[in-house]
Design a protein around this nucleic acid. Structure first.
Lengths: 231, 231
DNA sequence: CTGCATCCGCCTCGATACTG
DNA sequence: CAGTATCGAGGCGGATGCAG
C-alpha cells in the first residue's frame, strides 16, 4: 500500500515548494549538490546525523520531482541538480546569507566542512558591489580552493585556484565561516594568526567590501536587490 | 528540564537558518506575516491542519529568535515580522515562485486563500520587465484587492485598489493561482468566464508580460537576476 | 565498498479537550 | 479569542543487514 506523502494541501506556490523541499535534511542535500555533484557516501559524510534510509528516500523523491538526477558522467557517478533544482540556487543562497547572522562563535560538536566556506562566499557576494576592477581573489580553506573573479562589473565565484590573484586568503573552515557570520573581524583574525591575507592593500579592501565585510562593519548585511516591495 | 531543541549542529549559514525556519509550518507562518500582521486566529484559519499548540510554540520561538514580534499597534494586535524577518521576503518569494511550477490543476480538498494570490503576484513580478509605462493594474480576487504600480521603471505590489487602473482583473482565488502556476492560460480563463479582464489591450499585454504570463508562454519562468554564478 | 531496505526507540506532529 | 495540556500516530535517528 503506497503510503500517501504528507502534504500541506494548499493551492499555493510556497506550500507546494515546501511539500518538496520542506522536509528535514532536504535543503541541506540541495546545498551539497549546489556545490557540485556528489556521491551517496559524500552526502552521508557531509550530513552527519542523517539516517541512511532517510538520505536514500530523500534522493529518490527529489529525483522523482525533477530536482536532482543521477549523474550521468562516466567516472562522475552520484547525484547532481537538474536545471530545475539549479533554480533553487538564488533563494537558497539568500537564506544561507540570512542564517549566517544567527551563527555565534563556533560551538564544540558543531560540524564544519571547507566547502561550506565556498557556499558562504557565494551567499555573501553582492554583485552590485563589483566595481570596474578586473581581478580575482583566491581562497584556500582547509585545502579546498576557490576564487572570486571580478570582470566587466560582474563578480562570480568559481572552484579551484586562479592565476595571479590580487588577493590570497588562507585559513581554516571554522575561521572562514566565523568571519562570514560577523562574529570575527577579518583583520582581527589576521592579528591572531588564524587568517593569512596576501595582496595589495587596496585589493584586499575591495575583496572585503565585495563580501560585505567592511564598510558598514557590524551593520546587518543586506542584499542590494530589493526586487519586490509590498505595502 | 529544558528540552534541548533539535539542531543540525552544523557551522553553516543554511543549516543555522533551517534550525530556525526549517521546521514544519514555520515558513508558512512567515508567509502569512509577509502579507501583513495577523492575529492568532487568522493564522489558524490560514493554516488548516496545524495544531494550536504547534502554532503557539512556533510563534513563541520565532519571537525569541527575533523573526517576529507581537504587533504593538493599538487595535492592531497580533503578530508581525521584525525587520530581520522581513529580510526573508525575497528568498521566500523566490521559493514560492519556484513552487508555482509544481502546482497542477487545483485538487479537491486543497485550500485556497485569496491573499495567496497577492503572494503569487509578488513572486511572479519581474522588476526588470517594468518598462517606461507609468500606470497600475488592479486585481480583485475573491474580495481581496491589490494592485501593481509601475513607475519610474520599477514595479511594486500593494494592497487595496488604485485610482484609474490601466487594467482590472476580477476572478476567484483558485483561478488566479492556477493561472500563475502556468496550468491555465489567462486568455482561456477569460473565454471560459472564470476571469474578467478590462482595460486597453496594450496595457493588458504589458501587465501579463510583467508577470511572465506571456512571451515565452509555457516556458518555465526564470528570474532575470542571476546574481551569483558558480562553476 | 556503494546504495539502499528493515527494524526499533524516541521525539515531533496533529487533533482534541480544556482554561484564562 | 488566545492560548495550554494531553495523547495517539507517524516521521525521524541509529543500528544493522544485504545485494550489486
Amino acid at each position: 500500500m503506497a503510503r500517501t506523502r504528507r502534504s500541506y494541501n494548499q493551492y499555493c506556490g510556497l506550500a507546494s515548494a515546501l511539500d518538496i523541499i520542506g522536509e528535514r535534511w532536504t535543503l541541506l542535500i540541495v546545498r551539497e549538490l549546489l556545490l557540485g555533484p556528489a556521491r551517496y557516501r559524500d552526502l552521508l559524510d557531509s550530513l552527519p546525523g542523517i539516517g541512511t534510509n532517510l538520505l536514500a528516500e530523500r534522493l529518490k523523491f527529489l529525483a522523482e520531482q525533477g530536482v536532482i538526477r543521477r549523474a550521468a558522467g562516466e567516472n562522475e557517478r552520484g547525484y547532481e541538480l537538474t536545471e530545475h533544482g539549479e533554480r533553487l540556487r538564488e533563494p537558497v543562497l539568500q537564506i544561507a546569507h540570512w542564517g549566517l547572522e544567527h551563527l555565534g562563535a563556533p560551538d564544540e560538536g558543531q560540524e564544519v566542512r571547507p566547502h561550506w566556506g565556498f557556499l558562504a562566499v557565494q551567499s555573501m557576494l553582492d554583485p552590485s558591489r563589483a566595481g570596474d576592477a578586473d581581478e580575482c581573489y583566491e581562497f584556500r580553506v582547509d585545502g579546498t580552493d576557490f576564487h572570486i573573479r571580478v570582470e566587466g562589473g560582474r563578480a562570480t565565484a568559481h572552484e579551484g585556484r586562479c592565476e595571479a590573484p590580487a588577493m590570497l586568503a588562507v585559513t581554516d573552515a571554522r575561521t572562514f565561516v566565523e568571519i562570514g557570520s560577523g562574529n570575527l573581524n577579518p583583520f582581527m583574525a589576521v592579528v591572531s594568526g588564524r587568517l593569512s591575507l596576501d595582496g595589495d592593500e587596496e585589493c584586499v579592501q575591495r575583496a572585503m567590501a565585495l563580501l560585505g565585510l567592511i564598510e558598514g562593519a557590524e551593520a546587518p548585511r543586506k542584499r542590494s536587490q530589493e526586487a519586490v516591495e509590498a505595502v
